[in-house]
């Protein structure tokens, strides 16, 4: 009997590996190999369109100390972190509302309503914000028309704030869904227990609901943070090219200036920043939940 199990076990491992091999091979060839190439490039010496096989850390030193690169990376971080905080903070009450105050039969309708805008062309949504916030845009022309303002507002366009609003809108549904899933999993009897033991609603929320939904909040944070820090379209359209972020910098180095090693060093640095912050978010979550979990 034991022998049959082990034979079966081995064949199961083989079938599993065979079954996953097309998908895994694809990922190895088109993802792992290219990422490896970028890491390799980042350690080589580059100039305009030429790459020489001299291993060096010069690209990284330039990326991490050059004032232009540093300013762009800090701007990307600032924008991505602001977007994440804003998006998650405004998404939480919605997820809470749908999970706790909407009848079960109507929940999927609400989720459907929330996700529809996310499935409409991302480019067009970003462009619409340019149209809304622009100097001669919808808000300015509307307010001028009603007579509330005498000249177009300038503090709503071509700045980091406009980037944040646009991206917060673009990624809103991403934040709601994971928080909603986490809230749905909470055993409702725990909340009743809290209140039976004399806690107020607010304290029950603070001590039971919020900690139990932190997993969803962290997932939402990552889902919003990772694509926003690498966003290419918004800085270009909303920032008018004057507020470049990491992705725009990568494009310039990789293609326009054609210094692939330096561009690769930027890409690897961006990946490292994303990885470090992701781990940090998860660690914060562990602290928040305490050693009991």
């Amino acid at each position: 009997m034991a022998k049959t199990t082990s034979v079966l076990g081995r064949s199961e491992a083989r079938s599993g590996l065979m079954l996953i091999s097309p998908t895994a091979l694809y990922a190895v060839l088109l993802l792992a190999a290219p990422l490896g190439t970028v890491v390799l490039y980042s350690l080589l010496t580059g100039g305009r369109g030429v790459i020489t096989w001299d291993f060096t850390l010069a690209n990284y030193i330039e990326v991490w100390t050059g004032p232009v690169y540093r300013a762009i990376m800090l701007r990307s971080l600032l924008v991505a972190l602001s977007v994440t905080v804003v998006t998650v903070a405004i998404a939480y009450p919605i997820a809470y509302f749908v999970s706790f105050h909407v009848q079960p039969s109507k929940k999927s309708l609400w989720l459907f309503l929330i996700t529809i805008p996310f499935w409409t062309s991302y480019l067009i949504r970003v462009f619409l914000w340019k149209v809304i916030l622009g100097y001669n845009g919808v808000i300015n022309s509307g307010l001028l028309g009603i007579g509330i303002i005498d000249e177009p507002l300038t503090w709503i366009n071509y700045n980091v704030g406009a980037l944040v609003v646009t991206l917060a809108h673009a990624y809103a549904p991403f934040a709601i869904l994971p928080i909603f899933v986490a809230l749905e999993k909470i055993d409702r009897s725990l909340l009743e227990a809290g209140q039976d033991l004399g806690e107020s609603r607010l304290r029950t929320f603070w001590r039971v609901t919020l900690p139990l939904s932190m997993g969803g909040v962290i997932a939402a944070t990552l889902i919003v943070f990772i694509p926003t820090i690498g966003d290419y379209v918004t800085p270009d359209l909303i920032g008018g090219g004057k507020l470049p972020m990491i992705a725009n910098l990568m494009e310039v180095q990789m293609l326009k200036i054609n210094n692939k090693p330096l561009g690769s060093a930027i890409a690897v640095s961006a990946m490292v920043i994303v990885a470090i912050l992701s781990v940090a978010f998860v660690m914060v979550n562990r602290r928040f939940l305490g050693p009991a979990k």
């Binding site: 895994a24 993802l31 990422l35 990772i226 690498g230 992705a247 990789m254 692939k260 890409a267």
Partner: peptide
């Protein structure tokens, strides 16, 4: 292997695009 297959979900698209382009 599953992690590698799912990795594009947590990589900024620009990095996927640029690394493929380089190769």
């Amino acid at each position: 292997l599953v992690g590698l297959i799912m990795l594009p979900l947590v990589l900024p698209e620009m990095i996927v695009a640029m690394s493929l382009l380089v190769v």
